[in-house]
Amino acid sequence: MTAPLISLQGITKTFGEGLAAFQALRGIDLDIQPGDFVAIMGPSGSGKSTMMNILGCLDVPTSGTYLFKGHHVEQLTRDERALLRRRYLGFVFQGYNLLARTSALENVELPLLYRGEAKKVRQQAALAALRKVGLEDRAHHTPAELSGGQQQRVAIARAIVTEPEVLLADEPTGNLDTERSREIMQLLERFNRDAGITILMVTHEADMAAFARTTVKFRDGMIESMQIHKRLVDA
């Protein structure tokens, strides 16, 4: 086995203080190998999103250690975590979260903007990313002119345009019908298989989790079970 890309030990997360305090995560230990495709499942309120926010370096745990590529994320400043996200992570959200009244192309260019890429480079990379999700011909459409499935594909293009190591997706198919959901999953599966992007995905649906290599089940802020469907082939 190679060294894990992500290593969580004794992660807890408590919201609020005193009597109102609520422990959303209560001691999570988890290792994720590079190239894995992990589906996180569990009932509503079991702490999946909280876990994803911590994994995505958007939030820090109350206690425990989170090692990402050798960085102690729990010790990093706000700006340092932003730089980690910029360099290594891509995000896909349930609600797509594209910039309104902004073309698909410009939405996909956005992460490159913060990497300081020149306009030409940004445009070419964004067009290539849109091509990979099959939306090259919709480059100049705004989100309002795209269907839900198309918007989510633009969001995926935006997440992969920087060639990230990890793609985090919190219920990416939550707002889509089964057919559109399958298309999204096929895209994710392909990026995982062909580009070697590690994918961490929250989903309610077993059908969607079936695309993943590993399934982690959450209950009441703890990991209930973990199943490996498809072994990673060691290089």
Binding site: G56, L58, R78, D79, A82, L83, R85, R86, R87, L89, G90, F91, N97, L98, L99, A100, L110, P111, Y114, R115, R158
Partner: peptide
């Protein structure tokens, strides 16, 4: 929009 920018790595 600000949330999106911050999430994809914009600094404060």
């Amino acid at each position: 929009e600000i949330g999106i920018r911050l999430a994809i790595g914009a600094l404060g």
